[in-house]
Design a protein around this nucleic acid. Structure first.
Lengths: 138, 138
DNA sequence: TATTGTTATACTCTATAACTATA
DNA sequence: TATAGTTATAGAGTATAACAATA
């Protein structure tokens, strides 16, 4: 009731995520024959911006040793490629291939679709929610 | 710009989620020496309400065969227990122990804490967001 | 000496299929 | 026959530690 409104808002968002985000992630991953981590990695890589392995490891919040395997599997499917970095021959840069970029776009489209409870909300309510969220500075 | 407000709202929530929920999940799990799935399983089980393995498998959206191992490990730590179900000797009911209930509460407290971008929002903005989310019927 | 990425190891999660014991 | 849960198996993610190549 007199609960901290920020806490309650976060709690309501978590419920929405648990009920819809996670199940959809599993569904979409299965459809595209990817694992959740592979989808996440594709999402973190941006078209036209090659980044070192270590950067991806940071983005994924996992150890660098894991990235080797994840990248191996994505590269084996032609979705990303390892490139040499000029200036430091230890580094390898990761870049999306054309195919990887296309798949990344499909993932984005599927996951960006608002879940039923949100889609079925009256439009003025949707706008109120959007405006309230726009005030949050990520 | 003239994007569907529901879609934009969902996108903004996803950003917030990716930036804060996942990292915190990893942190809290490490602190409590649990895996993400073990935390999720504890969260799904409610104190005083024993449920069959199959129900937990549904809640976790994973195959029943996985639940055996997850439950094994939680039970070995004394966090949950398997009980026989009356009426059907095939079924086993899962119940939180006292220790499991306490740990589940701690998880809830940690994850329910709103992330900085939300906590730092002016209170009237927090209320607007909360009210907009209350309109969403999960 | 320190850093980047890899390999080796061990554990957990994952689905599929085969199994046990019930129903 | 069908269902609840287990076991076996193989692939993927996970951290730690040890390693090669380079800085």
């Amino acid at each position: 009731m007199s609960e901290d409104p920020g806490r309650e808002a976060w709690g309501l968002m978590l419920e929405l995520f648990m009920a819809h985000h996670r199940p959809r992630l599993i569904t979409v991953a299965a459809e595209l024959d990817l694992t959740a981590m592979q989808m996440l990695a594709l999402k973190k890589l941006e078209p036209g911006r090659a980044v070192p392995m270590s950067t991806l490891a940071d983005s994924l919040a996992c150890d660098a040793s894991n990235v080797t395997g994840i990248v191996d599997r994505l590269e084996a499917r032609g979705l990303i490629e390892r490139r040499s970095a000029e200036g430091d021959r230890r580094k390898k840069l990761l870049a999306l291939t054309e195919q990887g970029t296309a798949l990344r776009d499909r993932i984005g489209e599927r996951m960006a679709e608002p879940p039923p409870p949100l889609a079925e909300l009256p439009v003025d309510r949707q706008r109120a929610l959007r405006d309230a969220l726009r005030a949050v500075r990520l």
